[in-house]
C-alpha cells in the first residue's frame, strides 16, 4: 500500500506517511490510510454506496486536512467507512479544489474488524511536499 504508519511521532495517537506519483494519488493513499486506521482489514468494507466529497482551500496541506476531516465526519454522521475511488484536484486563482468519489458502506460490527475511532485530523507535523520526484505527506490523527 502507498502508506505506512509511523511509530515514533505520535505516542498516544496514530501517524502515517503516504505517497503517490501525483497529488491525486497521494490524497487517495491518505484516505486509504485513514480507513486502515479504523478497520483492520479494509477489504472487508464493501463498495456498496457512492459518496462525493468536494473541498477547497488555498493551501495543499489544509486541503488534505479538510478532505480527511470530511471522511471522519461521514464516519460519525452517516456511519460510513469509505475507500477512495476517484480524486481530482484543480488549481484556480491560487486556490485548490478537490473533487472526489468514494465507495463504501455503513459500519457493520459483525463483518468489519474495527481498530480505533478517529476523533480528528490534527495539524501536528502535517506536511504535504513534492520531494525527489514523488508526492509525500505526513498526517497525525487524534484517536
Amino acid at each position: 500500500m502507498p502508506y505506512k504508519f509511523l511509530d515514533d511521532i505520535a505516542t498516544a495517537d496514530v501517524a502515517f506517511e503516504a505517497w503517490g506519483a501525483t497529488r491525486e494519488e497521494l490524497f487517495a493513499a491518505s484516505a486509504s490510510a485513514l480507513l486502515r486506521t479504523m478497520v483492520h482489514d479494509p477489504e472487508a468494507v464493501e463498495r456498496r454506496e457512492e459518496i462525493e466529497v468536494t473541498v477547497e482551500d488555498g493551501e495543499l496541506d489544509m486541503l488534505l486536512f479538510s478532505f480527511l476531516q470530511e471522511l471522519v465526519f461521514l464516519k460519525d454522521a452517516r456511519q460510513l467507512l469509505l475507500h477512495p475511488e476517484m480524486v481530482r484536484i484543480a488549481e484556480k486563482d491560487g486556490r485548490f479544489r478537490l473533487e472526489s468519489v468514494l465507495l463504501g458502506e455503513r459500519i457493520d460490527r459483525q463483518r468489519h474488524p474495527l481498530v480505533v475511532d478517529v476523533k480528528a485530523v490534527t495539524l501536528y507535523r502535517l506536511r504535504v511536499a513534492f520531494e525527489s520526484g514523488i508526492w509525500r505527506c505526513v498526517v497525525v490523527l487524534d484517536v
Binding site: 489544509m62 471522519v72 465526519f73 460519525d76 454522521a77 480528528a120 485530523v121 495539524l123
Partner: peptide, 17 residues
C-alpha cells in the same frame, strides 16, 4: 463529548487559523 465535541474543536481550530 464524542463526535460533536471533536467537530466543534476542529471547526474552531480552522476558524482561528
Amino acid at each position: 463529548s464524542r463526535g460533536f465535541g471533536h467537530q466543534v474543536a476542529t471547526d474552531y481550530l480552522q476558524s482561528f487559523l
